[in-house]
Structures are given as structure tokens and as C-alpha cells.
């Protein structure tokens, strides 16, 4: 049965009419045309669908709209401030921390969540925080560097 669900999406209040068992991933991609959030496995194993739900990284492929109701969702499209990239996005660009770019939105959203919880992670804490996000191109080496750079920039008060 369809019902009205309200939540905040990238800083704006939104309302949708749908079944509360529908998954956030598909609502973002089809209802809102926010296609930056990617499907990679649909079962919680790859992390390419990661978004922030009340500042916590979650896998949108397994998140129902019922869980989203009344909360704040931030997707890759909502991270930059106009043309000014978020420090994590900027660090991914400057470190070439991507190849095909398909895992990138999920990597970035997960890293943003990680840095919110822990602004100065050690290498081991980055590994633990990122370990369930998969990258087939093997960009891992540069993703480490990008997260470390972003942590340093963000500590500088940005």
C-alpha cells in the first residue's frame, strides 16, 4: 500500500507517495533521478550505493523508505557546495583516487561518514572503515591517500 513519506534530501524537504518497503536506492535513482548513487550488488556487499542517513553511511540498496521517513539523506549530488567540492571529493580528484569512477560515489560517501565519526583516522582505522566498499579497478592505494589528505584539510577548519 502506498503512503506519504517525508524526509530531507540533500538539504531540502521532500515528500513521496510510495510503498514503505521500497528501497532508498531505487527511489533516489528513479523517483528523484539522482543517479550518482550506484547499484553494484543489491545485497549489501559492495557499498557502491552508500549514502548518508542522519550523517551515518548506509547501504541504500537495503534501506527501506520506512527507515528513511523523517530523516536526513545526503547523496553524492548533495555533497558539494555549489561549484566548491567537499574536501573528500577534492582529495579524490587531486589524488587520482578513481579509475572507472563507478565505485567512487559510494567510496566518497562512506569516507565522509568515516571522517564524521573519526576526524583523524589511522591507516588501520581507514581500512576498517572502508573495507566493505569494493573497487574492481584497484584504486585502493590512491583512495587511502585521498582520505588521509581530506582528513588533514578538514582538520584545518574547512
Amino acid at each position: 500500500m502506498e503512503e506519504k513519506i517525508k524526509f530531507e534530501l540533500n538539504g531540502k524537504p521532500v515528500e513521496v507517495q510510495l510503498e514503505k518497503t521500497e528501497k532508498l536506492l531505487w527511489v533516489l535513482r528513479t523517483h528523484f533521478n539522482l543517479t550518482g548513487t550506484k547499484y553494484g550488488c543489491g545485497e549489501g556487499y559492495c557499498g557502491s550505493c552508500t549514502v548518508l542517513l542522519n550523517d551515518e553511511p548506509v547501504r541504500s540498496c537495503g534501506t527501506t523508505m520506512e527507515e528513511v521517513a523523517g530523516k536526513k539523506v545526503v547523496t553524492i549530488e548533495g555533497l558539494a557546495d555549489g561549484d566548491k567540492l567537499h574536501p573528500v571529493q577534492q582529495a579524490f580528484v587531486e589524488n587520482d583516487a578513481l579509475q572507472c569512477g563507478y565505485c567512487t560515489p559510494g567510496m566518497i560517501m562512506n569516507a565522509v561518514g568515516l571522517l564524521k565519526r573519526n576526524p583523524s583516522p589511522t591507516r588501520q582505522e581507514i581500512i576498517d572503515g572502508m573495507n566493505d566498499n569494493l573497487c574492481r579497478c584497484g584504486a585502493h592505494t590512491r583512495i587511502f591517500k585521498a582520505i588521509e589528505m581530506a582528513a588533514a584539510t578538514m582538520k584545518g577548519g574547512k
Binding site: 543517479t35 571529493q89 567512487t104
Partner: peptide, 18 residues
């Protein structure tokens, strides 16, 4: 640096299911 990086970090790069 890769010329397509900004598109890829902002979710603007389009793949065929997008």
C-alpha cells in the same frame, strides 16, 4: 590529473543505467 575526475566525484558522470 584525470580530466573526467570532477564528473566522477560529483555523481554527474553518466553510465548506461543512468
Amino acid at each position: 590529473l584525470r580530466t573526467d575526475a570532477v564528473k566522477k566525484v560529483t555523481g554527474k558522470a553518466l553510465y548506461s543505467a543512468d
